[in-house]
Structure formats: structure tokens, C-alpha cells
Write a protein that binds this DNA or RNA. Structure first.
Length: 397
RNA sequence: UGACCGAUUGUGUAAUGGUAGCACGACAGGUUUUGAUCCUGUUAGUCAAGGUUCGAAUCCUUGUCGGUCAG
């Protein structure tokens, strides 16, 4: 049997380097490709020449592992699919997750296509997650599972992948824990064995968001309104009728504020530079407890805040996802209208899974948590798990 | 204009003659392949000028500014 060819997306980091090594040890024909997806350094913190650095490191790692190395430049498509999406989401007043898009549109799309052009059987990345194959009713399905290292599980970032994308993907270090990855890297003397983990937007880096966004969204002074925790909206009783949909809508409703609901306590320079749950950057002192953003109104350019981390405006029982923005990694598990799924869900990376019920209705899915959730933010992804399998996700409305 | 009250880091406040603290903010690190959150550290102040006292944020005088009454 012919050895399978795998193309590893080598980033310069330790995870993808060890992933490449593991594959090589498993007998695959391993090739490395470094993706250049971004050139601009606007708003970049910490210098800016990390990209070049990563490129060199990746090349050296490939040399150390004795595998072929090449670079590809997807920056044009990255700008179109990921960065444009970011700006348009922020413009709508939502808070996007560029890395989820980057995986769906770049690493497991154009990069995967490129790999197929090069006659690869698979692409591999250094993600901490696992893939499993099962067969039901004579059909093969790929399961996306959490990484074994509970602390590093990155399945969340892959919550928008499809079966055809998963089919071609390998996650060689998904069953390894991070310290072990470091140990392996050290054992085989990889030059990046001790390199610090990367952070920030994948390929762009750690940026100062307001600076970055000001390239396209202009700064404009607006009011910061403080909402008291006694706002009547928090104590609206649940609808008593027998229509379940009314209850779901009630439980998943976003809070809506008007300037008269509170008092002006300061000014900001652009509501879209802030997100729900945010504390830093408001510049408002003199309170007993820190203020947090509880809502942003980008149309009227107003930020609403609440005092204290337990302010009721920070918590919601549920959320909803419009039907068009729902995605099933496992199409065979897709809910039909009227069905309810007991699920474990998360609304951000590294959040411990939360017990919830997903109610599928005609136009939307309603995710109702057992415990109220802090900082439910539209534009972010809610991911649904059954056990450690990620079965679907959707954009929070 | 008269009377009274007040003035402490960027903000809100403690300290009634004896080491100017706290919270929030801001800044810097740390955690984190999104945005956030979170953790640690740093920062900075007695309105001004005199006086009493061994010693003044604190007591006295004057001034400046702010507020409340009176008009």
C-alpha cells in the first residue's frame, strides 16, 4: 500500500512542529507548508517582525525533521474572507471570531485545496482536538472530538468545519497533552521547543483592536450610560401562556436599553470598539466595584455599563441562533423542527462546558442554559457538544 | 452681597495632632491561537500662603474654588 501523503501547516510554533514529527514517525510522507496570510502591521503590539521570525523557524524545523518545505501566500483571500468579515461584523455591532472563520475559510479550505493540488491525501495541523470515524447506516461520518488535554482543547475553533473538510484533516497531537508536546520537542531538540505559544488573531497577531479597527471604522465620541441593577427589565416574569415559543423567546432575549434608563457617567470614542463583558478601556473610576459593558448600541453610539461583576445585565439564561447561521458538523444529528437536544455547550474558547437544552424551532434554534451565562455576545459562536464530541455550532444572534 | 459647609492621587472615599490607606481607573507583566474575562505588580494625592506645635490632612488666619441657605 502506498504511503499516504500529508501536508502539515507549519506555523513556526511548537505544536505544528511536533505534529509533523509525529506524522513522520507514523510513516506518512510528510510535507510542510508555511502560510503567509497577512503582511500589514497596523495596530500590532510587540514589535511586528514575528511573522518573518515564524517563517524562518518553520523552515528550520522542516530542515530538522528532514521534510520538504514550501511557502504559500493566501493573504489576498485571507483579507477577503477573514478580515473583511471582521470589519463587517464589528460594523454591525457584533463581535466576530476571526479564528473560527480562518479555520473554515483558510486552513481547511484554500489551504486544503492547495494540498489536494499537491496530491496530498490529508492536511494536518497542530490543533488540540481529535477526529474519529464511525459508520452508521452504511454511511461514514467523521467525529470532531475535544483534545485529550482538557486545558488546551481547541475543538471550539473548528466548530464550523464540515464533513468534507474533516475527512481530509489529521490532528496528530490531539491525544497528547501540551507538556508532553513540549517534552517531545525538547527530546528531539526542535529549535522552537521552548518558544512561547502564539496569541492573538491567527496570522495577524496580538493587535490593539481599536487601533486595528480604526483603519475602517472611524472613532466617534459617544455616551457611556450606567444602568442600575434594579432595572425592571431584569425582573420581567416569564410568560405564563402555554406557547413554548414565548418562553424560549423570553429566556433568550437580549436586554435592550435606552439612555433614560440610566445616568451618563462618561464618554467613549466608538461603541464598536467595545464588547459585552468588557471591563478595560472604559476609563471610568470612582465606583466601588469595577464597571462592565452590558450592551453596546452601535447605531446610536452608546455604551451601557453595569457596576460589579454580578450585575444582572451581564447574565442571560439563553440565546438564539437564526436558522441560516446554524451549522451541523454531524448532519445526521441535525435537529428537526420541534426537537430538543440535551447538550453541553460553550460560548467562548476554553469555557468549561455548560449544560443546556437546544430547542429547534421553525426559524431559529434556542439554546437555554441550566445556569445563567455571563457575557453572551452576538457574533460569537455557540458550540454544541455531546460528551466530548462537537456536533454543531452557530452564530449568536 | 451675608451666613454656613466643603476642598485628600485621574475619580470616589478613609485617616480628629503621631507611618496618608482603600476601591475604581491608568500603565506594565502573566494566562489565553477570537473579542473578552481572570491573576500579579506599578503608578499617583493632602487647594494656596502664612501661623500654633517636637510633630499638622487634622488646630488658627487669610486667600482661591465649589456647594447650600439667605436675598
Amino acid at each position: 500500500m502506498k504511503t499516504k501523503k500529508v501536508i502539515v501547516g507549519l506555523s513556526g510554533g511548537v505544536d505544528s512542529a511536533v505534529a509533523a514529527y509525529v506524522l513522520r514517525e507514523q510513516g506518512y510522507d510528510v510535507h510542510a507548508v508555511f502560510m503567509i496570510n497577512w503582511h500589514d502591521t497596523t495596530g500590532l503590539l510587540s514589535g511586528g517582525c514575528e511573522n518573518d521570525e515564524d517563517q524562518k523557524v518553520a523552515e528550520l524545523v522542516a530542515k530538522q525533521l528532514d521534510i520538504p518545505f514550501e511557502k504559500v501566500d493566501f493573504s489576498e483571500i485571507y483579507a477577503k474572507k477573514v478580515v473583511d468579515y471582521m470589519f463587517s461584523e464589528y460594523e454591525k455591532g457584533r463581535t466576530p471570531n476571526p479564528d473560527v472563520l480562518c479555520n473554515r475559510e483558510i486552513k481547511f479550505d484554500v489551504f486544503l485545496d492547495k494540498a489536494m493540488e499537491l496530491n496530498a491525501d490529508f492536511v494536518a495541523t497542530g490543533h488540540y482536538c481529535r477526529k474519529e470515524t464511525i459508520t452508521t447506516n452504511d454511511k461514514t461520518y467523521y467525529r470532531l472530538l475535544a483534545g485529550s488535554d482538557n486545558n488546551k482543547d481547541q475543538s471550539y475553533f473548528l466548530c464550523q468545519l464540515s464533513q468534507s473538510q474533516l475527512e481530509k484533516a489529521l490532528f496528530p497531537i490531539g491525544d497528547v497533552e501540551k507538556p508532553e508536546v513540549r517534552r517531545i520537542a525538547d527530546e528531539i531538540s526542535l529549535i522552537n521547543a521552548k518558544k512561547k505559544d502564539s496569541q492573538g488573531i491567527c496570522f495577524v497577531g496580538k493587535v490593539d483592536l481599536p487601533t486595528f479597527l480604526q483603519q475602517q471604522l472611524k472613532a466617534q465620541t459617544g455616551d457611556i450610560i450606567k444602568i442600575p441593577e434594579t432595572h425592571p427589565q431584569y425582573n420581567v416574569s416569564e410568560p405564563t401562556g402555554n406557547a413554548e415559543i414565548d418562553l424560549l423567546k423570553h429566556q433568550s432575549r437580549p436586554y435592550i436599553y435606552k439612555p433614560e434608563d440610566g445616568e451618563k457617567v462618561g464618554e467613549h470614542d466608538g461603541a464598536h470598539f467595545f464588547t459585552i463583558g468588557q471591563r478595560k478601556g472604559l476609563g471610568i473610576g470612582g465606583m466601588k466595584q469595577p464597571p462592565f459593558v452590558i450592551e453596546t448600541d452601535t447605531i446610536n453610539n452608546i455604551i451601557y455599563i453595569g457596576e460589579g461583576k454580578k450585575h444582572p445585565g451581564l447574565f442571560r439564561k439563553g440565546l438564539f441562533i437564526s436558522k441560516e447561521e446554524l451549522h451541523w458538523i454531524r448532519p445526521d444529528l441535525e435537529l428537526k423542527t420541534g426537537e430538543v437536544l440535551e447538550t453541553d455547550a460553550r460560548i467562548r474558547y476554553r469555557q468549561p462546558l455548560q449544560k443546556a437544552k437546544l430547542h429547534m424551532k421553525t426559524n431559529a434554534a434556542y439554546l437555554i442554559f441550566d445556569e445563567k451565562q455571563r457575557g453572551i455576545t452576538s457574533g460569537q459562536f455557540a458550540a454544541f457538544y455531546i460528551g466530548d464530541e462537537l456536533i454543531g455550532s452557530g452564530v449568536i444572534a
